[in-house]
């Protein structure tokens, strides 16, 4: 993947289109899929629910307008990552279709929506937070074992099934690294960025662990630290303050406090790895995933998404 990524970075747009045509399904997506409902719009494309005429199944489609993508090689990288990995905590890739200047990426549909809906609308118990952290960590540890950093861990990129299934999505900004290789390009979402990313130092896999810590704060507070600030000021505060202050810290259990402490160490060497966190006592209090279902339904009801 690292070699492919380096080759992709040096390819011209025409070569990238050629490579996309080679790896994409030749079917016409407009004919094969019937658009049902838009789910959302992100930086890289629009996501909607569609019916696959081949088997009548409902799928999630990400429609990426290639003309708007300055770094098209990232798209190739995303498809290579999607096609290459299969894990119970990663949103499964089904197929990709090229239609003129639009790329349609078909993925499995999780009808519970994103974790963002839950964290912003309902209150989660520590046991439920621990369950989501465990499932997300399993995905992160798997990616890291394959030499891939996600770089954009946040509640928006964690999808839920109605049965409480938890899966990580959006691999468009992944980086493939060999061993302890480091990266420097600032990638991610400001409020979830690790200090070493913000200060343009070289960073590695543990940026995903920091972002998981920020996501845990989302599950406590409903939003990440500094969300009321502008992105630029948030970056300044991350660099200047380092570890964010967590409101109601004293209400959290000692295990949860220690878990957050290990995620949010500014010193990367002091920060835990994904594998180390999977053995943390806090995850032992994780509740069953099905206990997330009432939260998902409540959030969907509040947001009129049911």
């Amino acid at each position: 993947l690292r070699k492919k990524e380096m080759m992709n970075a040096m390819m011209s747009d025409e070569e990238i289109y050629e490579e996309l045509r080679r790896i994409c399904n030749p079917d016409d997506p407009h004919v094969r899929f019937e658009r049902v409902k838009q789910l959302g719009a992100g930086a890289s494309g629009v996501v909607f629910i569609a019916i696959d005429s081949k088997d009548g199944s409902r799928v999630a489609i990400k429609d990426i307008d290639l003309t708007k993508q300055s770094k098209k090689d990232l798209i190739l990288n995303e498809i290579n990552v999607l096609k290459g990995f299969n894990h119970k905590n990663l949103v499964n890739f089904l197929d990709a279709f090229l239609s003129y200047d639009h790329l349609w990426v078909a993925m499995e549909l999780l009808d519970g929506g994103s974790l963002t809906d839950v964290v912003t609308e309902v209150v989660m118990k520590e046991g439920q937070i621990a369950a989501v952290c465990r499932e997300t960590l399993l995905a992160i540890a798997f990616l890291h074992s394959k030499g891939t950093i996600h770089r954009d861990i946040k509640s928006d990129n964690v999808l839920l099934g109605m049965d409480g299934t938890v899966k990580v999505t959006d691999f468009g900004f992944c980086a493939n690294i060999v061993g302890d290789e480091k990266r420097q390009t600032m990638v991610g979402t400001p409020y979830w960025m690790a200090p070493e990313v913000v200060t343009r130092k070289q960073y590695g896999k543990k940026v995903d662990v920091w972002s998981l810590g920020i996501m845990a704060i989302e599950m406590i507070e409903g939003e990440p630290p500094y969300m009321k600030e502008t992105p630029l000021r948030a970056l300044y505060l991350i660099a200047a303050v380092g570890r964010p202050k967590i409101p109601r810290w004293e209400n959290l259990s000692p295990d949860f406090q220690d878990f957050l402490d290990k995620c949010l160490q500014v010193d990367v060497d002091m920060r835990a790895t994904a594998d180390e966190l999977l053995a943390h006592p806090f995850l032992k209090c994780a509740m069953e995933l099905r206990t997330l279902t009432p939260l998902i339904k409540a959030a969907q009801k509040i947001l009129h998404k049911s």
């Binding site: 930086a43 928006d156 390009t185 600032m186 990638v187 991610g188 979402t189 502008t230 992105p231």
Partner: peptide, 19 residues
């Protein structure tokens, strides 16, 4: 306010326009 909030959650690659 909703659109501002949504923009805040966008992913950035390299130097965003506001830097």
């Amino acid at each position: 306010a909703h659109s501002t909030l949504r923009r805040k959650r966008y992913t950035v690659v390299g130097n965003p326009y506001w830097m």
